[in-house]
Computed example of a mutant assay.
Amino acid sequence: MSHVIIRGENGRRHEVDFGEAEITVSFQASEQTIELAIEADDPDRPSHRKRFALANIPRHLFSKAMADLARQDRQAGKSPKT
């Protein structure tokens, strides 16, 4: 079950629960940011009611997180899945 949870600056929690719906994930990158878009395939919902999540992350932080994950996998003896 896919879901996204964020807590806004005002402290409120926002959740997108995709349930068992098929999801589409797209990934865009520029020199400064990485954008990750996740959208549920909800053919019965009007476009303004579709479930989605969009994250824009500074590229250097995303790259660091991926390198840290690869390092942890290597230290644990895990090989990347292909």
Rank of each mutant, 00 (worst) to 15 (best):
Q72A: 09
A67R: 01
K64D: 09
F18P: 06
R12T: 01
H48F: 13
I57Y: 06
S47K: 10
R71K: 10
I6F: 13
Q28R: 00
Q32D: 10
D44R: 07
T24Y: 05
A65H: 07
R59V: 14
S2D: 09
H60D: 12
D73P: 04
H60N: 12
R74N: 07
I23V: 05
E9G: 11
S30W: 09
H14S: 15
K81Y: 10
D73C: 07
S63Q: 08
E15G: 07
I38C: 02
D44K: 11
P43R: 09
P80W: 04
A29I: 13
K78I: 08
F18M: 10
F52Q: 08
R45M: 07
K78T: 05
I38G: 01
L54M: 15
I6K: 11
E31M: 04
M1Y: 03
D17R: 09
D41S: 06
A53D: 00
D73G: 10
F18W: 03
K50L: 13
K81N: 08
R59W: 08
A40W: 00
K50G: 01
D68R: 03
P80H: 07
V25Q: 08
Q75L: 14
R71S: 09
N10D: 10
E35R: 01
D17V: 10
A70C: 06
K78F: 03
T33L: 15
V25H: 05
V25N: 04
H60I: 15
A37G: 15
I23Q: 04
M1H: 03
L69R: 05
G19M: 03
P46N: 07
A70R: 04
T24E: 08
G77D: 12
F27T: 04
G11M: 12
A55Y: 03
L61C: 08
S79E: 13
R12N: 02
E20V: 14
A21H: 13
N10Q: 09
A70Q: 06
